[in-house]
Design a protein around this nucleic acid. Structure first.
Lengths: 121, 121
DNA sequence: GAAAGTACTTTCCTAAAGGAAACTACTAAG
DNA sequence: CTTAGTAGTTTCCTTTAGGAAAGTACTTTC
């Protein structure tokens, strides 16, 4: 008689696990939270603005991540009718719904850093 | 005169960005949240238990991820004094502090899936 | 008409993540 | 003495992530 999964073998757990996988696949990578966080703080930023705000990112990654976020409707991209064409990126309502996750993540990161500092110095 | 970052150039933002990077580096990867979630639900599980509970994971990844999580004090590893040696993994207090993040992530993933379903079908 | 700015894309490359399968080592049951 | 179970490690491989640099295209300023 082989053993099978018990703890995670309930419909509720399966839905939760699926949901976490979904969220992770959309939010994975080095830059997504930084871009989203920046757009939540200061909405309506151009490509070059974001390049300056998101410390360390390059054009290729910024371009790619913005496309991913737009496809998933977390940000919007608006081409402005200006003489040198400008583009404005802004957070969407869907994107704003990530605020609690970003806040929890930042809160946890700060307290984790403190606990490491307390134990090691 | 070159433009510089404005939105993210406050001490508070820098600390938040750093905190998010810290959290991400500890929690990145395909399996960490699944393992932590499983250990929060059913504490004290063996290696083979986790292999069965965490759907799709292989021995190499499970072994590696457990080591990472132990180094960061999010889980504990206890070798039991039994005849065929067994090992029990359990969540630590530090690990339990991730519950809000996991809950928010699951909540967001569920509502995101619903919104996709509503718009596309 | 050269420089500089906006907004990207493309190419080329390296490093990290992840998976399958085999292997180690030990014990207990039949 | 063979099978099965616990607890991994090691090797080999493919895929994905990420970065640097150059190129495209168009416009305004000097």
């Amino acid at each position: 008689m082989k053993k099978k999964a018990i703890v995670n073998d309930t419909p509720i757990c399966r839905v939760r696990m699926q949901a976490i996988s979904d969220a992770m696949s959309i939010l994975s990578g080095k830059w997504k939270f930084h871009i989203l966080g920046t757009l939540i703080e200061g909405s309506k930023l151009g490509f070059m603005d974001l390049l300056r705000e998101v410390d360390g990112i390059g054009t290729k990654m910024l371009s790619k991540e913005l496309q991913d976020l737009e496809v998933n409707q977390l940000i919007s991209r608006t081409v402005m009718n200006t003489k040198p064409v400008t583009v404005k990126y802004a957070i969407t309502e869907n994107g704003k719904s990530l605020q609690p996750i970003i806040d929890e993540l930042a809160k946890w990161g700060i307290s984790y850093r403190k606990s490491v500092f307390n134990n090691k110095s």
